[in-house]
Design a protein around this nucleic acid. Structure first.
Length: 885
RNA sequence: GGACGGUUAGCUCAGUUGGUUAGAGCUACUGGUUUACACCCAGUGGGUCGCAGGUUCGAGUCCUGCACCGUCUACCA
């Protein structure tokens, strides 16, 4: 018969199955009577390229989907991409700049066309990369956040929130990115603690000759925007100055010295310059004291006319210049080093400015409900500890600045009348007479579209679309899988949006997902975050080329404990690849033994098992297989993927290959048991367990070995027939089956004995055995196998006194003592060492048992356990002591 | 400043409700290759479980304090 290639070549096989799955539309969700299961794929940016984080996330989602399919559920997994406002806009701007053009000169319409072109050209890259990971999502339902229907949902959400009073326009300090020149939300600002300087300047008191007040600041460039100096009302140092005025440097402004409790007495000089247009605290103080707002910056953070005499300078240049100027006037008292936290733009990495502007804000609806649904357990977190973080954020939630001064995105559906700009029109369709209106120039934050993902992907608010997409069947989804970095950006907001917009349902039907699984961060082998600038982020596509998709998936998952950061090292992928090869070869070995015939169902396998009586080795393996299957199921239910994959690997390698197949080579010669049927069943179940993790190789071998008529994911996961079958023999025979474990221990001990004597494993010599009476029969029953596995020519049974002692190496097991004739020195010493070790264990056990407290308090089974162990050790020691005599 | 996570073998990590002599994998070292697989097999070595106390008959596991590493979060010019 035809046998597999000697080596597994993933590339062709992956291509073949990707095509076959797609042709058969395996992963398109259908309407049927199966239980429904769905997952929301976090949409990557259209500008994105696949990184290790995506790889981990999507593989986990794929495992959940494939596992659900195995269990007979109908699975919907919608993929998609996000238009990524700032990221895409800056990418296109850069491209234009290269051509010597600027976005502004290009104009809004032309720019958007250009961005669309860009998306059409590059949008498929991330999809192709995802496909090569083997993800089983429904590509026919792929959604893009700027699709017309999706956009309609976004605008509808805006209009509804506006109408119910949650969206409003306000003039206040926002986080301003001087590079992208747009406002940002709180979440897009990253606080970094950086070293800076704290300058102390002297402001001249107007009312008193030659008197100064020292003020401390880290931002001298905003001095021209000062409108007051504030001190703490109870600060003794400045009592005499309160109510007086001082001169604002570089301007002719006379500014008051005011008292406000927000000033920290102990920081700096205790006197704070108040620049309400450039600092949130100052803004609040300014409001309380009705101070004017003076903005000294242009949108790009160069100084404007209020910043004279430094107009036109960049903010950092201006800082130097101001310091120099005041120094030359003798008004600089000191410069100190100081660490302080400065907000940085998440995208362009520059320090953000608190900047006064008019923006759209959202006051979050349904905050209480969002907390409640987690408290009540409608939504569960994995790992649980994230619940605290989630609740903490909701407790401190701030209004969301949703407007962005960009062109790329959903334009805000608000129009201002040309004659009367106070007259606003807010609707999805826009006004009837557009010629009389100007639309708001801003677009919405990208996350304002992403937070609608759970239902806009199904066509919300269009009721017909929701129906044709079986929304009610597949909502809520089962699990959201993501990194914790977008817990607030996206996950929490999706919960709020779903609670708000699906209002006519009970809470359990309004939440977007039942579980939130937060993965760890993939770091490099030194524990650093992966980043472009460090160049420590491997390209998953390269890794797939080297290790195969399944190798990458297995390797990555086996080092990803639940919610813990991952230290990535390619050598783990080597393990994954090696495992695939091993699996491949075990199947090849099966083919070499005998023809494989088509088995259509699990029942067929069991029928095959019943054709011949099973050996003890067969029975033992089947019992182990069953235990493995049950454990596997538990692990997947509790999202312990790394434990699950390790379990399968361990069963397959240690129990199946290294033990059973070696036994089988002997058993076949002896024609005992039913090794073919046992192998078939084990391989079948191993492939099934592996299929969510390593879908390509599993599918290929499933076909090669003819384990079913259809795809492997149609195999089903009902263990009952197997359980019943195993019960037929294991119930009366369990004790005997368990002796196989001891047998393995004895074989291992004998191998070790030979190795220690520097004898080759194949060296055929005589084994001297001094067996315990109760074990003699069992030992003899397995002797031929032991002989073969450990390599002995013959055996001589003897009692302890006749064992050849001094010139022999010995080992003692629970079945008895074994010895080899060899030129070993120090054998006595070795035995003494063993006796010594045993004595320590014996002493500890005896101490325990003589402790009344222990005997009175400890549970019976623990005491029994200690007693048995003591007995066993005592006997072993006795055996050894006999040898020395 | 607050919250959370981590600290167990050279490395990466398991270790359930406290309970028998703390386990894997990788690496290292030794040896082997018979009916699959050198992307293989067998064997060996290696740990006062971060530190200091406490509770208990019994602590890697529970409690208290400390140290170090990391993440998030709020920030004072």
């Amino acid at each position: 018969m035809e046998v597999l290639n000697k080596v597994y070549y993933p590339k062709d096989i992956e291509k073949k199955w990707s095509q076959r799955w797609e042709e058969a539309q395996c992963f398109c969700a259908k309407f049927n009577h199966k239980p429904a299961f769905s997952i929301l794929m976090p949409p990557p940016n259209v500008t994105g390229i696949l990184h290790m984080g995506h790889t981990l996330n999507n593989v986990i989602q794929d495992i959940l989907c494939r596992w659900a399919r195995l269990q007979g559920q109908e699975v919907l997994w919608i993929p998609g991409t996000d238009h990524a406002g700032i990221a895409t806009q800056s990418k296109v701007e850069k491209e234009l700049n290269k051509e010597g053009l600027s976005a502004k000169s290009f104009g809004r319409e032309a720019f958007i066309r250009r961005a669309q072109d860009w998306r059409n050209k590059h949008g498929h890259i991330i999809y192709d990369q995802l496909k090569s990971l083997g993800v089983s999502c429904d590509w026919s339902r792929a959604t893009y956040t700027l699709d017309p229907q999706y956009s309609c949902g976004v605008l509808t959400a805006f209009v509804r929130l506006y109408e119910s009073g949650y969206i409003y326009k306000g003039k206040r300090l926002v986080h301003w990115c001087p590079v992208s020149q747009t406002a940002l939300s709180d979440e897009e600002v990253i606080m970094k603690t950086i070293p800076g300087k704290l300058y102390t300047f002297l402001y001249k008191i107007v009312e008193k000759e030659d008197t100064f007040i020292p003020i401390a600041t880290t931002r001298p460039e905003t001095i021209m925007g000062d409108v007051a100096v504030a001190v703490h009302p109870e600060d003794p140092r400045h009592q005499h100055l309160m109510g007086l005025h001082c001169q604002c440097p570089f301007t002719d402004r006379i500014i008051p010295i005011i008292a406000d409790k927000a000033v920290e007495k102990d920081f700096g000089t205790g006197a704070l310059k108040i620049t309400p247009a450039h600092s949130p605290i100052d803004f609040e103080i300014g409001k309380r004291h009705e101070l004017p707002l003076i903005n000294v910056f242009n949108p790009d953070a160069t100084l404007n006319e209020h910043g004279a005499p430094f107009q036109g300078m960049d903010r950092f240049q201006a800082r130097e210049a101001v310091v120099e100027a005041l120094k030359s006037k003798g008004l600089l008292q000191k410069i100190e080093d100081c660490e302080h936290a400065v907000g940085h733009s998440e995208r362009s990495h520059v320090p953000i400015e608190p900047y006064l502007s008019e923006q759209w804000f959202l006051r979050y609806p349904k905050v209480k409900e969002a907390q409640q649904c987690v408290e009540e357990g409608c939504i569960d977190f994995w790992p649980k500890r994230w619940i605290k973080t989630y609740q903490h954020w909701l407790n401190n939630i701030q209004d969301w600045c949703i407007g962005r001064q960009l062109w790329w995105g959903h334009r805000i559906p608000v129009w201002y009348h040309k004659q009367d700009p106070q007259n606003m029109h807010v609707s999805v369709e826009g006004p009837q007479d557009p010629e009389n209106w100007n639309q708001d120039p801003d677009v919405l934050d990208t996350w304002f579209s992403a937070w609608l993902w759970p239902f806009c992907t199904a066509g919300w608010p269009d009721k017909e679309a929701l129906k044709t997409n079986y929304f009610d069947r597949f909502f809520p989804s089962h699990t959201l899988v993501s990194g914790p970095d977008i817990l607030f950006f996206w996950i929490t907001r999706m919960i709020i949006a779903s609670l708000e917009f699906l209002e006519d349902r009970p809470m359990a039907q309004r939440i977007p997902f039942q579980n939130i699984y937060l993965t760890g961060i993939v770091r490099d082998s030194m524990g650093r975050k992966m980043s472009k600038s460090l160049g420590n982020s491997p390209d998953p596509i390269d890794l797939i080329r080297t290790y195969g998709t399944d190798g990458v998936r297995i390797g990555l998952l086996s080092i990803a404990p639940q919610g813990q950061d991952i230290r990535f090292d390619a050598r783990f992928l080597t393990q994954g690849r090696n495992f695939c090869t091993k699996l491949w070869n075990a199947c090849r070995f099966r083919q070499m033994q005998d023809e494989c015939v088509l088995h259509a169902s699990l029942q067929d396998f069991i029928v095959a098992l019943e054709q011949k009586p099973l050996s003890l080795y067969d029975q033992h393996l089947l019992v182990r297989l069953h235990a493995t299957l049950q454990m596997f199921e538990t692990y997947l239910k509790t999202f312990e993927f790394n434990a699950a994959i390790k379990l399968v690997q361990q069963f397959f390698k240690n129990e199946f290959c290294d033990w059973y197949l070696e036994v089988l080579k002997y058993a076949r010669e002896q024609t005992i048991g039913n090794p073919l049927a046992v192998q078939d069943l084990c391989l079948r179940q191993v492939l099934i367990m592996l299929s969510p993790f390593a879908p390509f190789i599993a599918e290929e071998l499933w076909e090669q070995l003819q384990f079913g008529k259809g795809f492997i994911h149609e195999a089903g996961w009902d263990l009952t027939p197997l359980q019943n079958f195993i019960h037929t023999f294991s119930s009366q025979n369990l004790e005997q089956i368990e002796t196989i474990e001891v047998l393995r221990g004895v074989v291992s001990a004998l191998r070790s004995l030979k190795a220690e004597c520097k004898l080759s494993a194949r060296k055929q010599i005589t084994l001297y055995a001094c067996l315990r009476e109760t074990c003699t029969e069992t030992f003899k029953q397995h002797w031929q196998l032991i002989q073969r596995l450990a390599g002995f020519q013959s055996i001589e049974y003897c009692d302890a006194s006749s064992l050849p002692i001094v010139s022999a190496a010995t080992i003692t097991t629970s079945w008895g003592t074994f010895a080899l004739l060899t030129e070993t020195h120090n054998e006595r010493q070795r035995i003494q060492k063993d006796i010594h070790a045993l004595s320590a264990h014996i002493a500890s056990a005896e101490l325990k048992l003589s402790n009344e407290n222990f005997v009175n308090h400890a549970p019976q089974e623990i005491i029994e356990g200690v007693k048995n162990l003591l007995k066993d050790n005592l006997r072993k020691r006795e055996d050894l002591q006999k040898l020395l005599k």
